[in-house]
Amino acid sequence: MIDWLARHRFSVIVTTLLILPLGLMFVSGRRDSATSLPERVAMGVAGWLQGVVGGALGGVSGAATDYVALVGLHEDNVRLRSENERLIAEALEGKRLAVENQALRRLLEMRQSRRDLDLMPATVIARELTPFFRVGRLSVETEGSPPQPDQAVVTMTGLVGRVIRASGGTADVMLLGDTRSRVATEVLGRGILGMMVGSGNPDAYLARFQVSQTEPPLEKGAVIVTSGHDRVFPRGIEVGYVPRPEERRQAGPFVEYDVILAVNPASLQDVLVVRGTASPLRPAGQ
């Protein structure tokens, strides 16, 4: 038997190794059966090997790719920096235009809402600062007809001041906080008339609202608007509000309240100059 096997070794092994795979195929082909042990072993070994080789190759490939990516990095950096600066400049310009557009839109809305007023747009060209870095005076420039002294300067949020000097298209504006400033005002909705006097405080945008002693006390947050009695400032423009009515004080025959002004002159870019009224001003309360 052993001699026979030795003599026919090639045929026996070939036949065995050709029949064995047929059996394996037959078992594997029964798809309804569970995965056999040889299949699990083969899949496990091959999967592990592919994972190891794939991971190693991926690392080498990643390093090579990263190295190749460094070629021309300096030029890319210079180009990207330049592009970044250009884009930042464009973004800032866009933001500036958006703010300007918003301010102009508000002015336009005011012109449309106050058709009784003849309003002329003006641009703030200079600000005079107090020692406490508060704006004490403005210079504005108009296009078209030149501004005149004692014309009111307003914005959408309220009253700014009045023109005190004008030369050509340029004018100096006295703000409400100036000690020389006087504005005929009233308490909105209460019909209490009074006078807004500049506080002269170089450290705050404040004014004093003077009313008769016979008037009832004001409540906190009372809004002060122009009354139009001085024929300089048109009626109904907001001037400010009373933050602390309990701190009122007597000033001669009047009672004074501190008023925080509605307009912060430090943030102004564009204003409107009131050239006149389309209809006669009506006294407050009528």
Partner: peptide
């Protein structure tokens, strides 16, 4: 003989690297 046996193993390796195939077919 050696070549034949080695080829059968080569087929088994191919089977292992053939997901979804029948084990033994490449052998």
């Amino acid at each position: 003989l050696r070549g034949f046996v080695a080829s059968a193993f080569v087929g088994l390796v191919a089977d292992a690297f053939t997901p979804g195939g029948l084990l033994g077919m490449n052998a």
